[in-house]
């Protein structure tokens, strides 16, 4: 026993400061937030009575104008468009580049560069690109549509009450498609050359090669990309704050937390934050468990 401890003990000791810090700053603070979310701390005075799950049920049943449900609806539209958009574009770009093109490095770098830019910086310009004026006053993308005689495409972008959040996803797609492309491209390149060659020898068509040999190999990459993009989407805050500012039309839970804190409603802010954490956990935990298991098997 002593010998075994001597064998792995130092490792545990080296990692223990990180473990302590994470135990406090991740799990400890989450527990603290949960506690606040069950109190009635609705203003800076901070009365600290325990109210159980009332703040949570209030969000779903007793929020003015169903504000929280509305923010969830916005988040859902945003997430679907953002995830589908990045996955499709990322896969398409990787597919186009995988077949070998001249100046591949240039394309890769350009597709990837938005990833280096912060949402705060790109929001400055997307505010202009998504200007809602049409006709003679049109600017940004609407102007381009006008010039290309695609006037029917001109629209009010994020100010549209029904589908505005789909427009809001555009800057996010712009920013992260390159990243998904990089993941897929790494996936493509990780497929052993022999597999492709064998398939070609057998006379498989290019379509069949991708359909039956390459895409199945990419499933794990696609899953990783999905998880990464998906959880980023749920946390989306910077982009919305810098494009539209905090307002009803584009409010998502992360922005609602900010708005609740602005009015010192700590309990409500905490309840929304905890729900947000739960949504992310529903996505992440099965994935983490799955990954750990898969790893152990191999």
């Amino acid at each position: 026993m002593g010998k075994r401890i001597k064998r792995w003990g130092p490792g545990l000791l080296l990692i223990s400061p990180s473990l302590v810090v994470l135990a406090v700053f991740v799990y400890g603070l989450i527990a603290w937030t949960v506690k606040v979310s069950m109190s009635d701390e609705h203003d800076a005075l901070g009365s600290k009575g325990f109210v159980g799950l009332k703040n949570y049920t209030d969000l779903f049943t007793n929020d003015i104008n169903d504000r929280f449900t509305h923010s969830l609806k916005n988040l859902l539209i945003f997430t679907v468009v953002f995830v589908v958009g990045t996955m499709v574009l990322g896969l398409l770009w990787a597919f186009l580049l995988d077949r070998g093109v001249r100046a591949e490095g240039v394309f890769r770098t350009v597709y990837l560069f938005p990833m280096a830019v912060s949402f705060v910086a790109s929001g400055v310009v997307w505010r202009w690109l998504m200007n809602s004026n049409t006709g003679d006053d049109a600017g940004g993308l609407n102007w381009i549509f006008g010039e290309l005689h695609l006037g029917f495409l001109q629209n009010s972008w994020w100010t549209n009450p029904d589908w505005g959040m789909a427009a809001m996803a555009m800057p996010a797609i712009w920013q992260l498609s390159g990243y998904v492309m990089a993941l897929f491209l790494a996936g493509f390149r990780g497929i052993p050359q022999e597999l492709r060659e064998a398939a070609v020898m057998d006379g498989t068509s290019t379509f069949q090669l991708y359909r039956h040999v390459i895409f199945p190999q990419l499933t794990p990459v696609a899953l990783s990309a999905l998880i990464i993009v998906g959880h980023m989407s749920m946390k989306m805050f910077d982009l919305i704050m810098s494009v539209s500012g905090a307002q009803w039309l584009t409010e998502v839970p992360a922005v609602y937390v900010w708005q609740a804190l602005l009015t010192s409603d700590y309990a409500k802010a905490a309840a929304i934050a905890v729900l947000l954490l739960l949504f992310v956990a529903v996505l992440i935990v099965p994935y983490l468990v799955h990954t750990t298991r898969a790893e152990r098997r191999s």
Partner: peptide, 28 residues
């Protein structure tokens, strides 16, 4: 009004500006 009231009123008007639902605004 307090900041809480102000926040709720701003949010209600933001919604109203997009759907013009007068009954919902008054109730909110």
């Amino acid at each position: 009004c307090s900041q809480g009231f102000q926040g709720a009123a701003n949010s209600a008007l933001g919604k109203f500006s997009s759907d013009l639902d007068t009954a919902a605004l008054q109730k909110a």
